[in-house]
């Protein structure tokens, strides 16, 4: 079963545990500026929204890469940057419609979410369930369940 990260912004408190988990998993350091997932805090509305790569099937970044440094991990569907192949040309960062692949000046390579090889640290660290790792075919299951509950259990 393929799984995917599922984000429910209404549950996010902007604690940034996900960002730290990401940087620690990938770099062994707590450093939000190196995180591949970012939480955006919209002060005016109070909304807090975690955002990261959704692992497009037809991945723009992968197609744009001139040196084939972005590969599909067949086990989990992640598009993975091969650091030793990446030349830091940043074309993928232009190609990505969502901005979720980014250059890292310190390494001279790009980085993006690789689902931590199938066990994403951000989802494990999220204390509120705003980030979960679920069946890719059923990311809407929880929302369906809530509406089903309304239909079956809460109608007069």
């Amino acid at each position: 079963m393929q799984k995917s990260l599922h984000i429910d912004p209404s549950k996010c408190t902007s604690c940034l545990q996900c960002e730290m988990a990401c940087s620690f998993e990938n770099y062994g350091v707590f450093n939000n500026s190196l995180s591949r997932i970012k939480v955006f805090d919209f002060h005016h509305s109070g909304a807090k929204v975690p955002y990261t790569c959704t692992q497009c099937d037809e991945a723009w970044c992968m197609h744009a890469c001139p040196v084939e440094a972005i590969k599909l991990d067949k086990d989990n569907g992640a598009k993975v940057v091969l650091e030793d192949v990446c030349v830091g040309c940043k074309v993928c960062t232009i190609a990505c419609p969502f901005g979720t692949v980014n250059y890292v000046a310190e390494t001279g390579k790009v980085q993006k979410c690789d689902l931590c090889g199938g066990d994403p640290a951000c989802a494990e660290a999220c204390p509120t369930g705003a980030i979960t790792y679920v069946d890719a075919n059923w990311t809407g299951l929880e929302r369906m369940r809530q509406w089903a509950d309304k239909l079956g259990n809460q109608t007069a």
Partner: peptide, 8 residues
Amino acid sequence: INNQACFG
């Protein structure tokens, strides 16, 4: 509106 955490 909702609740907000501090860092971490």
